[in-house]
């Protein structure tokens, strides 16, 4: 026997719905309201768009500081390599002790430091960076970076001249 269900209409009239008819009906969809979520998502997107700044890949060059008053200088047992930096427009000229000509650019400085390191046969020789006061920090960091790149282990700063 075919199953049937009965529905009550408003007036109390019984309406029989056959099982076949019921099967044919689409099932009601259950969907949570998406509108508030989309609203919040767009708020977040707008916030990120307005406050976004690209992050530059930042790192740190580790070093050691002498203890005490560095302006008075320290006794150094081995003759250090002095790298004097003086400004030349937007660039800088590096002068190294024992070399009479100016060194232009970081690559040349690196090669000169490497040459000195090989000639001395030691990475323990102190490298003292001696910038002039009006040299941009970029060039001071550049000299420090090239000394590390040349594998020197003992790098320091001298008070500005």
């Amino acid at each position: 026997m075919a199953k049937s269900t009965e529905n009550m209409a408003n007036g109390g009239t019984v309406h029989y719905v056959s099982a076949r008819k019921k099967r044919g009906r689409p099932k009601p969809k259950m969907q949570p309201p998406l509108t508030p979520m989309i609203d919040v998502t767009f708020q977040l997107l707008l916030f990120f768009l307005l406050t976004f700044t690209f992050r530059e890949a930042e790192g740190q060059i580790p070093s050691r500081l002498p203890i005490g008053d560095i302006t008075k200088g320290h006794d150094v047992k081995i003759d250090p390599i002095f790298v004097v930096i003086r400004p030349a427009g937007d660039q800088a000229i590096y002068e190294m002790s024992g070399i009479n000509v100016g060194i232009h650019g970081p690559e040349e400085l690196y090669r000169t430091l490497m040459g000195r390191q090989r000639a001395l046969g030691s990475k323990e020789v102190p490298v003292v960076i001696k910038p002039r006061g009006d040299v941009a920090w970029q060039h001071v960091v550049e000299a420090f970076n090239q000394a590390i790149r040349a594998k020197f282990k003992n790098i320091g700063f001298a008070p500005s001249t």
């Binding site: 930042e58 790192g59 740190q60 060059i61 580790p62 070093s63 050691r64 500081l65 002498p66 203890i67 005490g68 008053d69 560095i70 302006t71 910038p131 002039r132 006061g133 009006d134 040299v135 941009a136 920090w137 001071v140 960091v141 420090f144 970076n145 700063f157 008070p159 500005s160």
Partner: peptide, 23 residues
């Protein structure tokens, strides 16, 4: 560099043994 040097001096005076330079 003149503007950075006081930090090196102050850090050495405060006997802070390590310094990292951001680049």
């Amino acid at each position: 560099f003149d503007e950075i040097q006081p930090i090196l001096v102050a850090a050495a005076k405060a006997e802070i043994p390590r310094m990292n330079i951001s680049a």
